[in-house]
Amino acid sequence: MSVVLETKGLTKAFGGLVAVDDVSFQLQKGELLALIGPNGAGKSTCFNMLMGQLPPTSGEVFLGGERINGLSPRQIWRKGVGRTFQITSTYSSMTVIENVQMALLSHNGDVFKFLPFAHKMYREKAMELLDMVGMAAQADRHCAVLAYGDLKRMELSIALAHDPQLLLMDEPTAGMAPKERVALMELTAKIVEDRGVSVLFTEHDMDVVFAHSHRIMVLNRGKLIAEGNATEIRNSPLVQEVYLGGGTLFDAEEGADA
């Protein structure tokens, strides 16, 4: 197994508040790694640093051994990292397939072309991607009229458009119906298996986390407090304390992160 993503001492401080504190972990190829923790634990901050949205205060991020912190989201995407957002970000004036085609156009360096018709380009490849997430039947619908779960699946196909080696998913099932959640994570697990993509995701729904992740990391008040498989995490007294009560919980709620 080779290491796809590695962080060393990743830290982010907002003034006096240390949102992410000395986080180091490794993500193996083909692994589905969950990052969980109560509200304000620093999950989203951590994600934003991995994606280049926020510069870390200190620490380093390596993608396949190459240092990527300090790069822009654009550059990190070009290195083969796809992402989905906690709240979907889509091009609401386009059809479903055009949303996917846009990512393909960018991947193939066609953004500054004035001559061809965009809607004819990479249509087949876009259709394959949509088919993979079960959205092919809705390819030509206006994406502004889609149900939220369908938007999430569309976003997943966009994130996979440039054959990424790593997929970062920030609360992939937030805002979805329980049945859809399970289906989406099953789909993700299948994609991991089929394509050998590695996935790091944050999640609040513990059913989803325990059912599908290969490994779980628990973040509390910016620090990694536990790491292991589902059984180990379930039985960890520290994790139980963080989630079910104990002195630190309400202090932890003060964090800026949602």
């Binding site: 091009y91 846009m102 960018s106 500054f112 004035f114 440039h162």
Partner: peptide
């Protein structure tokens, strides 16, 4: 054209456009 689409993409969701390399 792809350029016109990219322009609309930047308007509709700058975040998505930037994080897909545009």
């Amino acid at each position: 054209s792809p350029f016109g689409y990219a322009l609309r993409a930047a308007r509709d969701s700058k975040r998505q456009a930037e994080s897909t390399g545009i």
